[in-house]
């Protein structure tokens, strides 16, 4: 039964802003990083290009992209009031909410993949246009890093989706996501930052010694949040 709901969720993405976001968000990061590297005079190993893109992604764009993704996925149902139809279907609760969460996680993985591909292409472009680059970029290492960051972002993603699905208005999830991103940037160097869901992905790369903690908190906490969200939303009246 769940697979039907997951397929339906993917079908809804056709020609949607959600898919556009999933390509645009990582593309912005790579474009910005590429421009910065092309304008810089500093000679550096090309591997740092991947570090720059990953940092921009983890600290700024990923929390904002997760916020927007949650809002778009939820508003897709809130705006046409489609809960009034979907929730009358057999087996809809809790599968519809579980399917939404799974699709969100897949889309985060998709954004990470787009970022990975574009980062490699961006590095190639910088290497071609600048003759002072040295070293090489490691696709496998970058893929592993982005995968860990996506997994660590699960908790923040589920919290965002929960709020977005709970409220018909898009304002509460936007306020949450933007505020959390600002708090994350402001508190990134604090000792407690590792426990802040919107910073867990960033901590994967900024504090390698605490990588395991961030990954565990982010992924296990994300699964727990997902379960709580599904239980809560399934009991609500439409």
């Amino acid at each position: 039964m769940l697979h039907r709901f997951v397929i339906a969720e993917f079908l809804k993405l056709r020609r949607s802003l959600t898919l556009f976001l999933c390509v645009a968000a990582p593309s912005c990061v790579v474009a910005l990083n590429t421009i910065m590297w092309l304008r810089s005079d500093r000679a550096a190993p090309i591997g740092e290009f991947a570090v720059g893109a990953s940092s921009l992604w983890a600290f700024g764009m990923l929390p904002l992209a997760i916020t927007a993704l949650g809002v778009l996925l939820a508003q897709m149902e809130h705006v046409p009031r489609s809960w009034l139809h979907i929730l009358t279907l057999p087996g809809a609760r809790p599968n519809v909410f579980l399917a939404k969460a799974l699709v969100m996680l897949v889309l985060i993985a998709f954004m990470s993949t787009v970022l990975w591909v574009e980062t490699l292409l961006g590095a190639k472009l910088v290497d071609l246009l600048r003759d002072d680059m040295s070293g090489e970029i490691y696709p496998g290492g970058l893929a592993a890093l982005l995968s860990l960051m996506a997994a660590a972002a699960t908790l923040a993603a589920m919290l965002q989706l929960w709020v977005a699905l709970r409220f018909k208005s898009f304002v509460p999830p936007l306020v949450l996501g933007i505020s959390a991103t600002f708090i994350a940037i402001a508190s990134t160097s604090s000792k407690e930052a590792i426990y802040f869901p919107w910073l867990m992905a960033a901590k994967i790369m900024s504090e390698p010694q605490k990588q395991q903690v961030a990954l565990t908190l982010g992924s296990v906490g994300g699964v727990l949040a997902l379960i709580l969200m599904v239980v809560h939303l399934s009991r609500r009246e439409a």
């Binding site: 339906a8 897709m76 046409p80 489609s82 009034l84 139809h85 009358t88 057999p90």
Partner: peptide, 30 residues
Amino acid sequence: RGKIGSLIETPSLYDHLTGRENLDISRRLL
């Protein structure tokens, strides 16, 4: 529940999809 079809309050359709695509989503869910 499987024996009931309904239209409550508003048509509740996905504007960015075609009529056929809208039906296809519900068809698959059923």
